[in-house]
């Protein structure tokens, strides 16, 4: 299910994902500097920008871009991690103008600096609001290994392959009657 154009994205890691379990078909990890080139490739392939999402992890801010095609199960996740101290990501709003607001939202909530953004200031929060509400306290941040699904961790080598943790979820007693 992985589209061919993924090879051209310059990814550090590409992991095929189970759409039924995660809603995406492939997860693509990138270095922050290469995001513009990768997005330009996706633009050429006719991908639609769904959103830009950030989350606060121990390793830094993880910025994820979701793209999909007009048809079929085609959602790609582009993920990159920037440090907490200098959260700079090149802005893709030059290629996808729709990213403008999404990036401003990430700036609002996390303080991530999208370099090259034409208009990076508060979008949803009040203009005199100080701080970034979704940035977590140091002790409540989780590492990537704590928030990523097991198959992904296995694929990128962060976890041992034979850890069948996913299998024994008590909540998943499917279809049981009350």
């Amino acid at each position: 299910m992985i589209p061919e154009c993924i090879a051209a994205l310059g990814a550090t890691q590409v992991v095929a994902m189970d759409h039924a379990a995660t809603g995406v078909v492939a997860s693509v990890s990138l270095a922050p500097e290469t995001i513009l080139d990768a997005v330009a490739v996706l633009d050429k392939e006719g991908y639609l920008l769904e959103d830009v999402m950030a989350s606060d992890l121990k390793e830094g801010f993880e910025v994820t871009y979701h793209f999909s095609l007009f048809e079929g199960k085609s959602r790609l996740v582009l993920r990159l991690i920037v440090s907490h101290d200098a959260p700079k990501v090149p802005s893709i709003s030059g290629i996808y103008p729709g990213a403008d607001w999404h990036e401003r939202e990430c700036f609002d909530f996390f303080g991530i600096d999208f370099t090259g953004h034409p208009n990076l200031h508060h979008l949803l929060l009040a203009e005199d609001f100080e701080g970034h509400p979704l940035v977590k306290a140091e002790n409540s941040r989780k590492a990537l290994v704590d928030v990523m699904p097991q198959p992904w961790l296995v694929a990128v080598g962060l976890a041992a392959p034979e850890a069948p943790k996913v299998e024994k979820i008590p909540a998943a007693a499917a279809g049981a009657k009350e």
Binding site: A21, T22, G23, Q150, I169, A171, K177, E178
Partner: peptide, 21 residues
């Protein structure tokens, strides 16, 4: 048939991420 699967009151999904469109 039933209209709800059994989900425990103390609901803790496994670690991971998922999205739904």
């Amino acid at each position: 048939g039933p209209v709800t699967a059994k989900v425990s009151r103390v609901f803790k999904p496994p670690k991971g991420e998922a999205c739904m469109a």
